[in-house]
Amino acid sequence: MKDDAHTDEPRAKGATGIIGDVLGHVSNLIRKEVDLARSEINENLTRAGIAIGLLVGALVIALVALNVLAAALVAAITELGIDAGWSALIVGGLLAVVAFAMVAKGINDLKLSSLAPTRTVKNVRRDAEAVKETL
């Protein structure tokens, strides 16, 4: 009888230990997922900051392009056929194209879907499924 009582006791401690281990692993997993979410959000905010910088740069270039295009138009009208005016027009057009490309890239990078912590959401779903399968 002593042996039976002795064998039941480790099983009870074993079950308690397993539950403690599972809770410890779940707690550690949650902590890691929060850290991952924080890291991913910081990364996305950095990308958003760069995108805003691109938009500001595009605005500056667009203003320069408008000045150059205006100067080119004035030169073209007053000096019809003079190479300097058409050159300024070409340069202004190229700057406008660069500004457009920068705006398109900046707007694309600022989409809300690109700022969401998608990797973390995917990991949390995977972890939840693994916990469900374990239980």
Rank of each mutant, 00 (worst) to 15 (best):
M1C: 12
K2I: 09
D3S: 13
D4Y: 06
D4K: 03
A5T: 07
D8L: 15
D8I: 15
E9L: 15
P10F: 10
R11I: 09
R11P: 01
A12V: 15
A12T: 15
A12D: 06
K13W: 09
K13D: 11
G14E: 10
A15I: 12
A15W: 05
T16P: 01
T16R: 06
I18H: 01
I18E: 00
D21W: 06
V22C: 11
L23W: 02
H25N: 09
H25A: 10
V26D: 04
V26L: 06
L29W: 05
I30E: 12
I30D: 02
K32N: 03
K32M: 09
D35Y: 07
L36D: 11
A37G: 00
A37E: 11
S39K: 11
E40Q: 06
I41L: 02
N44Y: 02
L45M: 11
T46C: 03
R47K: 13
R47A: 12
A48H: 05
A48N: 01
G49Q: 10
I52S: 15
I52M: 04
L54Q: 14
L54E: 14
L55S: 04
L55E: 06
V56I: 13
V56K: 01
A58H: 00
A58P: 01
L59H: 08
L59P: 00
I61W: 01
A62Q: 12
A62Y: 09
A62D: 03
L63E: 04
L63Q: 11
V64N: 04
V64D: 03
A65S: 11
L66S: 08
N67H: 01
V68N: 01
V68S: 01
A72N: 04
L73S: 10
V74Q: 02
A76E: 07
A76Q: 09
I77D: 01
I77Y: 02
T78Q: 10
T78S: 12
E79G: 07
E79A: 13
G81P: 09
G81E: 12
I82K: 10
D83A: 13
G85S: 08
G85I: 03
S87T: 09
S87E: 12
A88S: 08
I90E: 13
V91C: 02
G92K: 02
G93R: 00
L94A: 05
A96E: 03
V97F: 14
V97Y: 08
F100P: 02
F100H: 02
A101F: 06
V103Y: 03
V103W: 00
A104T: 05
A104I: 10
A104R: 14
K105T: 14
K105R: 15
K105E: 13
G106V: 04
N108K: 07
D109N: 03
L110A: 05
K111M: 10
S113D: 15
S114I: 04
S114T: 15
L115Q: 14
R119T: 11
T120Q: 04
N123Y: 00
V124P: 11
R125A: 14
D127E: 08
A128S: 07
A128T: 15
E129L: 04
T134D: 07
T134E: 03
L135C: 06
L135D: 00
